[in-house]
Each structure stands twice: as C-alpha cells, then as structure tokens.
Amino acid sequence: MTRELRDCLGHFATGVTVVTCEIDGVKHGATVNSFTAVSLEPPLVLVSLDRRSKACHHLDNRPFVVNVLKADQGDIAMHFAGRPAARPIPWDGTRIRDSLAHIVCAPWRSYDGGDHVLYLGEVEEIEVHQGDPLVFYRGAFREAGA
C-alpha cells in the first residue's frame, strides 16, 4: 500500500520549496513539497518533514524560511534533497536568493504526523518576485502551463 499511496499522491502537482534555518552560524535546508497555508489570522503555514531526516530536528523551536523555488532552480531543489549542486547555493542570510517567494516564520507549534513531523510557522515577513514556479508532478520537475 505504501508504494501505491505514494504513486497516487504523486498525481497531485505541487510547487517546490526549500525550508531553511540557521544553527550556530551554519545554514541548513531541506527540499519540501509538503507545504501549505493554514490560517490568515494568525498568519500560519505548515511544512511536513520526514522525522528520520536531519533537517526535521533542525526546525524544533527555531525560526525558518520557506523559499518557493523558480522553474530554473531544480538543481537547488536536488541539492537540498541530497544531490549536491554544481554551483554554490546563492544565500542571502537564510534565504535562497532569486527564489520566487520567501516566507519568514517564527516557530508556532509542531505535531506528530506519523512518520513525519508537522511544523507550523507564524509568518513574520513575506517577499515575492517575478518568475515561473518549479512544479513537481509524478516524481519529476515540470513546467507550469499557461
């Protein structure tokens, strides 16, 4: 059932984000497509991270940034999914430069989500740029239609 469920869920196209934070001056990130808006009042978003991942525990009670990736940032998504990029990551603090959007969050709550941990962040700052989104569908990056 696990593989069948994963394949079924893959039919839901998503944007691609990299969730970043900083610990003792070291930047950390994880590619996440399990990201959603939760509430406008208060402004809350949710990211879901596999509890076995290193990145999962980095978010415990720590501010984080959701970087919404542009169509040409597939190599950055792969870097934070465990396949190092050929080019250096273009950091701007804990933000990934030239992303489609940045959502800066304070920790709000975390919840048990089975084999994942659900992290809610209170949105403190947003920034939006022009461009096309990086889309993930059925196990591959795709271009968004017109």
Rank of each mutant, 00 (worst) to 15 (best):
V18I: 10
A85L: 14
L49Q: 12
V45G: 03
G29N: 06
V104M: 03
Q130Y: 07
D112N: 10
S53R: 04
I103H: 02
C56K: 07
H57G: 14
E125D: 08
F12R: 13
L44C: 04
G139E: 10
L46V: 09
M78F: 07
H102T: 11
T14V: 11
G74K: 00
R62P: 05
N33I: 00
N33V: 00
V32Q: 00
F136W: 06
G15H: 14
D50N: 15
R87W: 15
V117E: 06
P43R: 09
W108E: 12
T31L: 15
P107W: 07
C105A: 12
L100G: 01
G25A: 06
T17A: 09
V128M: 04
A81C: 08
W108G: 03
I126A: 08
C21M: 15
G15S: 15
N33M: 01
P133T: 03
Q73Y: 01
A13Y: 15
L46G: 10
S39M: 09
N33F: 00
G121E: 01
I76K: 03
N67Q: 10
A101H: 05
D112L: 04
S110Y: 08
D98N: 15
D132N: 00
G29L: 02
G131I: 00
E125N: 06
R97G: 11
G15Q: 13
F136I: 01
V66T: 02
E124G: 08
R97Y: 12
V38F: 08
Q130R: 13
R138D: 13
G29P: 02
R83S: 05
H129F: 13
K70L: 09
G139C: 08
C105K: 10
A37S: 14
E127R: 13
E41L: 14
E122R: 14
H57K: 15
V65Y: 10
L44R: 04
V68R: 02
E125S: 03
W108R: 10
D132T: 00
R138Y: 13
G93C: 11
F12I: 09
D50H: 15
P84D: 10
E122L: 09
G121T: 03
L100K: 01
I96N: 07
L46A: 12
V123M: 05
V135H: 02
V26L: 00
S34N: 08
H79I: 05
L46C: 12
V45Q: 05
R138L: 13
D50A: 14
E22T: 05
L69A: 05
Q73K: 03
V45H: 04
H58P: 05
S34D: 04
N61R: 10
T14R: 11
T36H: 01
A71I: 00
E22I: 04
V26I: 09
I89M: 04
T94L: 06
H57V: 10
A146M: 09
G15I: 08
A30S: 14
F80S: 02
P107C: 04
C56H: 12
N61G: 07
A71P: 00
I126D: 09
I23Q: 00
A30P: 10
T36K: 04
H57E: 13
F35V: 08
A106T: 11
V45N: 08
P43N: 06
D92K: 15
A37V: 05
P84R: 11
V104Q: 07
H116S: 02
A71D: 00
D60F: 12
H28C: 13
F80P: 01
I103T: 05
V117M: 06
L40D: 04
G121D: 03
P42H: 13
C105G: 09
G93T: 11
F141N: 03
K27T: 01
I103M: 07
G82N: 05
L118K: 10
